[in-house]
Nucleic acid binder design. Sequence first.
DNA 1: TCCGATGATTTTCG
DNA 2: CGAAAATCATCGGA
Length: 421
Amino acid sequence: MDDQTRMLTGLAGLGGLAQADVGDPDAVRKSLGQPQQDIGDILQQIMAITDESLDEAQARCWQEESPAHWGGSDDPTEGGGAGGGTAGGGLPLNFQHSVNDFYPRIPWVHVEVGALNLLSIRNVQEEDPPDPQIMRLDNMLLAEGVIEHSDYRAKLAQIRQIYHSELEKYEQACSEFTNHVMNLLREQSRTRPISPKEIERMVAIIHRKFSSIQMQLKQSTCEAVMILRKRRNFNKQATEVLNEYFYSHLSNPYPSEEAKEELAKKCAITVSQVSNWFGNKRIRYKKNIGKFQEEANLYAVKTAVDAASVSAQASQANSPATPNSGSPGSYSLSHTGDAYLGLRSLNGEGPGLAPALLPQVGTLHRATHLTDGYEELTASSLFTSHLDANSSWQDSDPTTTMHLPSPPGPPGSIHSADASD
DNA sequence: TCCGATGATTTTCG
DNA sequence: CGAAAATCATCGGA
């Protein structure tokens, strides 16, 4: 939920530094008015404060981002805001005095706010997918590459953009700060001799400090990416597509590479995720077929209805009298399914069917007939717990197939008529 | 907070 | 190497 705020805590942790620049303006004048202040002291204070804020940032990182903490119940308090605000508490005043005239030019504060705003874009997963029609159309456009799956890519792009801009700003700030210190040194060199060695050493120290800040940035970025890639359940539509394929290929649920790619496209997931899903599904289905019986029936019906509506559309298309009577499932999700192909190829031969007008029972009934030889439909449909003879992929352990309830009557109780055939 | 579901990873196997 | 099996870790609903 607050992944994005969380992924920011690293960045926000660096806000301890940014906090320093809101010091009172008087201090600036004071420090400017006293250039004779010992530069060594200043530097020491710089070191101290930088260390402190980094440590605090680090501590906060660990505290808030330990992976054990990533799970569910997040309370949506602004991680980022808190992170930016706390570190400033213990700032040694002297540090502010010495660099306050410099800090206001450092864009850290604004950077942080900007980064926050960018990244705190909420995870827009489902939540309100009210219109299935839109989802279907979106899916089609997605599949055809007309539109892109925004979520992951966009967020990754955000992270990349923030990382680069932050990095650039840090570098700029580093050189500005170096210049500032050089100027201070130069001013002091009027009152006391300063060796070039000393200057060099200071510059080196400053650079080291800034590079450790950069490391923080990198670490935060890594964490952000990890959070982004964190496991998430697939959306309903994706599982539907996958299930449709699975149950309509129940006798051989091993999609080819091309099929996997297509499924991946449809579901807006990767091919390896498709492989994972099928791996998990096969093993879990096999382990407890009974548990999946209802689901199998459901998708068998769904496939049949889908196919029927498609063929209905096709037949309507041939009929000038009924040009377009708004059939709901206009984009078939199962056109790779055997059942669908079987139906479609046979569709032309059934002129008087008008399947859309038939009740589902009749449709399924007809479908099982028509797809004779496409055992997927019959296999996945309805109380075939013993399952078809050619489902060799699940024949390993007979004991596992034992504890399926083997329902004598269908759980959904839809059209038991089909069994008698 | 518990617990089943589920996506991912690791190990084993052919 | 791909799939099965075991296991881990998170999600998400009750």
